[in-house]
Each structure stands twice: as structure tokens, then as C-alpha cells.
Design a protein around this nucleic acid. Structure first.
Lengths: 388, 388
DNA sequence: CTTGATAATTCAATACAGTTGAGTTAATGC
DNA sequence: GCATTAACTCAACTGTATTGAATTATCAAG
């Protein structure tokens, strides 16, 4: 899913669309800039930038922020994003519930809601998605023409693979063209992605990966997923299922085991269950951690090794600027891993000139993936490309 | 290295350049096509395609192949690549020698040479590279204006990382801007890459990955490297060192070991050395294999497990169309791995609808990386992009 | 064998967007 | 103050792609 846009020939219209995104992206990354500087860094003439800026002002996507003084010459008029100029909807579909959230052009969350799912047929889910989306958009006060699109998030992997049958799946949807389906349903442009990828992109829009273009995001969901971002784009693989790091074999007490049997939410739950502790929510884990619950501590020390191995693999295979840990796990647990994980010196990532830590904590909590869905749309809004 | 081209704004000139590549790429992938069909699949008008075709004919990059009949309407004039319309130079720098090769627009090797290196200073190497390049271009009869560029291949990783100090390194070159240096030296556009990446791209230009856009290439060099291709582009990582799969930890008899201590050319050499067998060339290995030399057989069965693990990791992390094995190892050995490796059913790559095998043999032998260097240039010639 | 349908191609006019160069404006610094 | 600097605007120009009508060559049917 999140099929990469098909490369097509350029014409005046598509070139303009590309250039709008180029300009918009410079404005976003700079916070505020003048036209001349955009022209210098974008390879466009000042005149072209001026025209595009006029367009963007018209569309309300950017706003004037006064003039910059302190230098020689005519002070440059500064422009910045107008957060209220555009919004994105994130919809996360889980087996038991649908979540929806709205964020603005700058990635700031506006509002989010949850709706329990009582049936899992495509029709039932679609009804819930539509109702919840409309509710969320209405309550957030977002006019339809300001809605840039919707990012639909659902647990992967997609289509028939050897990983089918995991508990988290919604198995009935194979062979449905989800993008077309949801585009028709919601009436706005749609992207579909798994939770880990959405969460990864989210970090780039707001969060730990702001300003980064190549990184990996390890996502604690029910299992363990990974979103890979390279040059600002998701690495989705040939069939959209890249990043299934939970299924890689790692050494364990009895030979090798899939990583996510050792490092995941399900794995803590099982571990604590054997110690007689029921985990119903993240708060339960937080409490257990605060109380230094022995079983949890055991799990943590048992999980650190495999997680370290996984990070070493990710670093050497992808050479990212950083690896981010996040998802449906309490901050405290992620912070614990941040210190307990050992980063090998023998790694392409062990370098003296790095200005970002090798390992970071990202956005965590229940809404991570939902917000990530919306972030997919925001990210696309700023990603220059010649596409149909 | 192989820095991804900086995204810039589009203008008429850059749009045209993009469209040329779009058209050229359709011609390449089709073998032969007519203008109308190119227009349909590229999102351009027939008129635009006509103009671009006229340009390409002028430049000698394509040629007319007659008309296609059998259908209604005016028979379409067919166009195909003109192999002699452009050439690319591949230069591989190893600690002990420099290799150079020339391939044509279709990826067919024309000629290759080797020159022993007696000193490893930047100056000494540059002299050899320049002399050998000129020799190879002269003997191949390639006029300078037909030379599309040169791909320089050298063992990675580049710049200061935690993997420094391996035997294969040319350590003196840190902090030199290699692309600028070689561009000035050779007077043609230059790309710099490591051997595994070059070899991976090579498979796409000619070879096992023809027609594929997302795959991984496991490269047997001195160690073990990997080139990752996603949507026709190399995944190089933030610092150009993605694919260092040889350094990932895998289970071994004594705990875990870096993959390439178990699966690599150096590893066979050491293994056979303990059995008193000196390996000086690939032929030695081929002979040992043909003779079912026990030490080699032991190594093969010892290596199959870790290699299987590595492939499982690659599949689940990258979801490629296929994994290709190749590089400086005899075909027989690679074919042996093709059958001895076990591909787990629990993998995103285990799918019923695949039309490419999960594992394939790629180009192998001593010249793999050198030809790959040239392939980088050919690949770039066909890759649409708006760039400076 | 003629005629109509079909599809590729060309031609000429048009539109769109970016570039260029001259001119204007408003700061800094001596 | 006045020269310098830099951002910005205006108007003419340029390069490419698009559009729609006209042309050409083949197939298929009568």
C-alpha cells in the first residue's frame, strides 16, 4: 500500500504543481523565508517564486510574517505556513475500534475520537469510518475545501503473504482496492498504509524526525513494525510490506525466535500474565514499571538484547540518520530501552560527525498511528513530484 | 556516496530533460514501441512525444525499426534503443588494481581491462584511473561525445564509520570530494558508489533484475555487501552506507558473529586455508567445488544457515520482488546456495501470486562491480527526474 | 475493388509557466 | 547624505506542451 505515485511526463500544469511543493517545502523547513532565498535554494527564478507565492497566499496555505531587517538591501518579506490553511484526516482501523483524528498543515493535532467496532465486515467498518470522519471534521470546524485528504491506517501486512493469520488482522479485505474504496467513501484523496509507516512519517511532520530525511521508526503495536524513510519517502517494498521487522529471526534462549515474540506489547502481556498480572492498557504497564514490578523488569532485560540486535541490523542495512522508538508503549518503557539498548561500535552508524543521536524516542501512545495517517497526507502535500 | 540528486524546481528545460528520460525509459522497457503508445503510457500528448522522439533520433540514442502492422489504422512507426548511441565507463578501484570497462546504452559489455596498482596515494591511483580509462575508451572506439559518464566503484563504507580498518580499505581518501575529483579528472559526469550498489544496479540494466524495480542484491566481494533497489533507485541511506549486511550479527557456534565472518569470500579462504588449501582465485574455488572438496562442502553447509537467516531478514525488512545473489564467487557456489538456502514460509515474501523467484543468481565473476559502475550511468540516463 | 472505419501522425495555433533584464524600492554603512 | 546592496516588480520573451483539425495508411466489410 501507499503505492508510490507513477512517474509521468511533465507539462506546464504538473511542473507548476511540482514547484508549488518545492516552494512550500522550503517554507516549512525554514519556518520563515523570503522569496529571494527560496529562489536561490530551489533553482527557480525570483519571479517564478513570486508568482507561486501569490498563488499560495491566495489558497491560504501560507501567510506573510513581516519583513526581515538587519541586512543590507531591501528587507525581505517573510512567509510562513498558515496552519489553518489545510487539514488532514487520519483514520485508524483496528479489529475492535476505529480512531479518527484531524491535524493541521503544521501537523498539530486538533481533535481525535474513538468508536468501538461491533462488526468487521467491510460495510460495517466503512459506515463507522464515514460517520466518525464526518463527526471529527465537523467538530474540528474544518471546511471541506480545506481538507487535503485522509490517511487510512490499518495493521499490515497487506495481501496474501506468509505472515497471515496473526491476531490483529482484518482478514476479510483482501483483493479490495482500498484506496479507491475509501476515496469514494470519503470524497477526498486517500492514502492507505500500515501503522508503522504512518507513525514513521508522523515523526517527520512533527516530532523527533523533523528535518530528517532518512531514518527508521520502530513501532510498538500489537507486534513490532518498522517504518523506513529514505529521502523523505517511505520505503514500502515491492508489495507494500517492507518493515516487518517483528518477523526477523533473532537469537533467543531456545534457538532463534521471531523478534516480536520477545519485543512487543503482546510479549510483555504474555510475560506479565505468567506472573499473574493482567495488562489491559498502557497505564497498567506504566504502573508496573513505576513499581519496579519484577516480572516487567525481567522482560525488559530479556528484551534489550534482541532489540539491540534488531537495531544493529537496521543500522547496518539502512544507514539511517537515527533510529526512533515509539508507538503503543508507555514513554517510560521506551526511555528504559533507550538506555538499556547497547549500540555496537562496529556499525556504519558509529561515526564521530553525527549531530543526531543514534537512538531516540518518538511519539508514543495510543494515537500515534492515527495521527500518522493524517501525517501521510501532510507529508505528501510537501513532497515535490511530477505525477498524474 | 551516489548522493541522490537534489530536488529542484521545474522549468521548461528541466521538464524536457525529464520527459526525454520518460520516453527513453518506455522505449527501453518495451524493446520497441510507437509514439502513440508512448504517449498513452507516459501522460504526454502524442505531439510532445513526437518532438522528443525527433530529438532522440537526432542525438542517435534511438533508431527507427520499421512499422508495426496487423492492426487497424495507420501502422505505428516503431522505435528502439540504438545501442551505439551512448556508452558508459565503469571504473573499479581495489587496493591492488584498477579495473575499467565500457558498456553500451543497452548495457552490453564492449571491453574491459585491468591495471595493477603499485601505490595507493590519491595521485597514483588517479593517474592509473585516467590512463586506463583513456585506453579503454580508445580501444572500444568510443567518441568522447558519446560517453554518457563514468561510474567509479570502490569498496565501502565511505567516510568515518565504526567499520573502518577492514583489510580492503583505501584509507587515505577520507574527506576528499570524490565526485568532484573524478569529474575533473575524467571530464565526464561521474557517479561514485560501492561495489555492492553498483552490482545491484547492473542487474537492472542487464541481467536478472531486468524489468524489476524493487529488489536486493547480495554481493560477494571480499566481505558481503548488499545493494538495495527500490522503485528503480538505490537505497543508499543517510550517509551512503546502507546495505552493509556483512556486519549484521547472526547466530553462530560461539554466540553471534558478523554475517561476513561466516558467509564471504574471505571466510571460504580462511576455512580452506585451515584445511591446507590456498585459494588464489575464483577458479580455485570452482575446482574445489567440482572435486567436492570436503572442507569446502563443510563451509557451504556451515554458511547456508546464516545466509538463510540474512535472506529472511532482508525479505521481511524490505519486501523485495526478489533477492539476487552474485559477485566475486563462482556460479557453481552461488547455484549451490540457491538450492541449499531455506526460505521460511513465515515471511512477507512467501506469497502465492509472485511471478519472480524469491531467490535468483545474478551476474557473478570478477567484473561484476566494474560493469556495475558503468550500469550506474546507464541507469541514470533512463531515470526521470527533475534535478539541476 | 471500392468504401468506410480505425488509428497514427503531422500541422498550425494556442496556452502555460518560467526566464530575462531593466527599473523600483528600501534598507545599511561610510 | 550618498553609494551600495539586495529584494522585488514589470513587461517582453522563450521553451514546451496541448489542442483540434487535416492527412495518411492500413484493415475489414460489402
Amino acid at each position: 500500500m501507499t503505492t508510490p505515485a507513477k512517474i509521468v511526463g511533465a507539462n506546464a500544469e504538473r511542473a507548476r504543481n511540482h514547484n508549488r511543493k518545492v516552494v512550500l517545502d522550503r517554507i516549512r523547513t525554514s519556518g520563515q523565508v523570503g522569496r529571494a532565498e527560496i529562489a536561490r535554494t530551489s533553482g527557480l527564478s525570483t519571479q517564478a517564486v513570486s508568482n507561486i507565492i501569490a498563488d499560495l497566499l491566495d489558497d491560504g496555505l501560507i501567510s506573510e510574517l513581516g519583513r526581515r531587517s538587519g541586512m543590507r538591501g531591501l528587507p525581505a518579506v517573510q512567509y510562513g505556513l498558515n496552519p489553518k490553511g489545510g487539514f488532514a484526516l487520519g483514520v485508524e482501523i483496528r479489529p475492535d475500534a476505529v480512531f479518527a483524528a484531524v491535524i493541521d498543515l503544521c501537523g498539530t493535532p486538533i481533535l481525535s475520537r474513538r468508536q468501538t467496532l461491533f462488526a468487521q465486515s467491510l460495510q460495517a467498518v466503512s459506515d463507522t469510518v464515514l460517520a466518525l470522519s464526518n463527526e471529527v471534521m465537523r467538530d474540528a470546524g474544518v471546511p471541506r475545501d480545506r481538507m487535503l485528504g485522509a490517511g487510512i491506517v490499518m495493521p499490515g501486512p497487506f495481501e496474501a503473504t506468509g505472515l497471515e493469520g496473526s491476531a490483529s488482522e482484518l482478514p476479510l479485505w483482501h483483493d479490495t482496492d482500498l484506496v479507491t474504496w475509501f476515496t469514494d467513501l470519503l470524497g477526498v484523496p486517500v492514502l492507505v498504509s500500515n501503522d508503522a509507516n504512518a507513525a514513521a512519517v508522523s515523526e517527520r511532520v512533527t516530532g523527533a524526525a523533523k528535518g530528517l530525511n532518512s531514518y527508521a521508526f520502530l513501532y510498538f503495536g500489537t507486534g513490532l513494525g518498522m517504518g523506513i524513510v529514505q529521502d523523505g519517502r517511505l520505503v514500502t517494498g515491492a508489495f507494500g510490506n517492507a518493515g516487518e521487522i517483528g518477523h526477523i529471526p533473532v537469537p533467543s534462549v531456545n534457538g532463534t525466535a521471531p523478534l516480536e515474540t520477545l519485543v512487543s506489547r503482546l510479549s510483555v502481556q504474555r510475560y506479565l500474565a505468567t506472573a499473574g498480572i493482567k495488562v489491559r492498557s498502557s497505564e497498567d504497564i506504566s504502573r508496573a514499571y513505576a513499581a519496579c514490578q519484577p516480572a516487567l523488569m525481567d522482560w525488559l532485560s530479556a528484551a534489550s538484547g534482541p532489540l539491540s540486535t534488531a537495531i544493529a541490523i537496521v543500522e547496518n542495512m539502512l544507514d539511517p540518520e537515527t533510529v526512533i522508538l515509539g508507538g503503543a508503549m508507555p514513554d517510560a518503557i521506551i526511555d528504559h530501552f533507550l538506555t538499556s539498548v547497547t549500540l555496537p561500535d562496529r556499525s556504519v552508524s558509529h561515526r564521530s560527525d553525527r549531530d543526531v543521536p543514534r537512538l531516540m524516542r518518538g511519539r508514543s501512545g495510543r494515537m500515534t498511528a492515527t495521527l500518522g495517517g493524517a501525517a501521510l497526507i501532510i507529508n505528501r502535500t510537501f513532497m515535490p513530484q511530477i505525477a498524474a
